[in-house]
């Protein structure tokens, strides 16, 4: 948990991205990991973990439907969902795990960051013999890697 950098346009560091929460729902739509920045007046709302669970379920359904609505043959599910002030980048791994990152609209490295989180997940979580599948991730190594990735002290 922790506050990340300043909001792109308003902060003093113009290029610093804002990175808000990170979720890792497995194929069933269950969340195994949430990392979020502290709530700010102009940032995203702080939700309870139960609300995040509901949201993950919804997202799971939407992702499946969006793949079916393609006007040009087969398609992936939604990869980027944009609101008016934030966007949601979704990375679906071949095993069905989804990595979801909420960022500001101007953030361009979201997909890259998710790739790196996936790497950390593969190294610290999947290779951990004590990690039961579909259970919440409690791994210090993973936490440290994610924190350093997003520049959290």
């Amino acid at each position: 948990m922790g506050q990340q950098k300043n909001r792109g346009a308003k902060g003093t560091k113009k290029t610093s991205p804002e990175t808000v929460p990170l979720r890792v729902p497995p194929p069933t739509g269950k969340i195994t990991c949430i990392r979020s920045a502290a709530s700010k007046p102009d940032g995203l709302a702080a939700l309870t973990s139960n609300e995040y669970l509901v949201m993950a379920g919804t997202l799971h359904g939407i992702h499946a439907i969006t793949a079916r609505l393609s006007p040009t043959g087969s398609s992936s599910g939604a990869e980027v969902i944009e609101g008016e002030t934030f966007k949601m980048t979704i990375k679906l791994t071949p095993t069905g795990t989804k990595f979801v990152l909420l960022t500001s609209l101007s953030e361009t490295s979201a997909e890259l960051m998710l790739g790196k989180v996936y790497e950390a997940y593969a190294d610290s979580v999947m290779k951990n013999p004590f990690q039961a599948p579909e259970m919440p991730i409690r791994s210090e190594g993973f936490d440290n890697k994610v924190n350093s990735l997003f520049g959290v002290a």
Binding site: A45, A46, T66, E79, E82, G83, E84, T85, M88
Partner: peptide
């Protein structure tokens, strides 16, 4: 997610 009156704009696959 945003906690205010905000609508969804687009999504991309």
């Amino acid at each position: 997610l945003s906690g205010r009156e905000e609508t969804f704009v687009n999504y991309r696959t």
